[in-house]
Design a binder for these strands. Structure first.
Lengths: 229, 229
DNA sequence: CATTATTGGATAGTGTCACTCTCCAATAAT
DNA sequence: ATTATTGGAGAGTGACACTATCCAATAATG
């Protein structure tokens, strides 16, 4: 198939496909002549993946590139696989995670900021659930998010955070249960599946909130409890 | 306090504060002279809120403006309150929701796209949980997200989606239980609290995934099951 | 075989976003 | 009296994700 057909099948403008090719987000087609190349199903697949990650998961093209990197070069051992998958998953979403580590000193790991109450709370929360608290980036990301909520005047009770944690456990269990046995498909499913179901989870939360608020408070109240629009 | 002190206390550059003032994200200080104004605690609070929403929740300044609009003019009745809160909550996150509705024709509501299987699946999923399926934007957003996952080659089983839905129900119940009685504080807590705990929930999901995958598959495996970095 | 359309490759331009910088006259601090 | 800071306005910046234009080479078509 030619590039114009690829554009048609994916509903992506041809100029954009050329841009993706330039940026290395899409592997080149097989050249048949100096100014001709053919594309196949893998290209359609790849373009759809890129669009899903940017449009639905809200990733930047830079983050998409990182994700594709892992998908194209999956680590051999299952041990490395999960590490790499997790590395990619802290991409973008929910705030700009630094890829190289700016704040933490390379040598002194525990002496830099030991008394941060938010890191402590995040670590305690993780420990209570049996999550590994040694994952610095995730725990620090969680601490940053709790700090931001506090700064905005939202105080989160242990009960509330506990409910979030419990929900996260439930989701994670289902996530892991759904992972296919094939190692190649496994990375893909964990990484892409998680990124694309993140917005699903958040949308469901909002739908469930409507129901929950209607159930809790409108039993004595008005006629139509459903918020319009 | 003067604007330079506000900049210090919030750790936001003075030029950025001026920008927020221009954009209407920060209410003006009380003018004491032609080139002088004083700021107070409400300004500190507001700036911290704006930064939390942009940096942690990842909102655009335009979306922040919408959120502030609702916080500053909370609807009178509880019935309207939840509707307005939900309106604001479908801002930004997880894809560009159109604020006015571009696709749907104003007149024909049900004749436009009746046979979309993804809308059907989203509606069925919501109905099974007792969620209100009449909320067009949320259900259609969910459908878009499911479609995107499918296009990316991720097929989500009913079990998997059910687990997400169950988790969402649990989170929503806790969310609603945590809402304060005061109507003014209620909107704030629902809207801001939800936006700021969205990333918390996603981070927890990743932490829980590590634990879940370690528990499910590394029992027979290597020594250190924790992914490094 | 002549004409028209399409292609790969490269370069440059566009619009949005979130700042950031510079300047000014008026005021405040010292 | 001198220096620093302020509000207000305007222009400039850098990142991002495209989008448009041009070119010679090839493909499709009559």
């Amino acid at each position: 198939m030619r590039i114009s057909e690829l554009a048609e099948q994916t509903a992506v403008p041809l100029a954009t496909l050329k841009y993706y090719l330039r940026e290395g987000l899409l592997h080149p087609g097989r050249s048949t002549a100096r100014t001709q190349a053919v594309y196949d199903g893998t290209h359609v697949e790849r373009v759809r993946l890129v669009r899903a990650l940017t449009e639905s998961a809200g990733l930047s093209l830079g983050s998409v590139r990182d994700v594709l990197e892992v998908l194209d070069h999956p680590p051999a051992t299952r041990h490395e696989l999960l590490g790499a998958a997790q590395d990619v998953l802290l991409v973008d979403e929910g705030g700009h995670l630094r890829p190289g580590g700016e704040q933490a000193h390379p040598g002194a790991a525990s002496a830099a900021a030991p008394a941060d109450p938010w890191v402590a709370r995040a670590a305690e929360l993780a420990a209570r659930r049996g999550w590994c608290t040694t994952d610095e980036p995730l725990v620090h990301g969680l601490a940053d998010q709790l700090r931001a909520a506090d700064a905005a005047g939202i105080d989160l009770t242990d009960d509330h955070l506990g409910a979030l944690a419990q929900a996260a456990d439930g989701v994670a269990a289902a996530d892991i249960a759904a992972v296919p046995a094939d190692p190649g498909a496994a990375v893909r499913h964990v990484v892409v599946g998680t990124l694309l179901t993140d917005p699903v989870l958040l949308t469901m939360r909002r739908l469930a909130q409507q129901r929950a608020s209607a159930a809790s408070q409108d039993s004595a109240g008005g006629e139509a409890a459903l918020p319009e629009r």
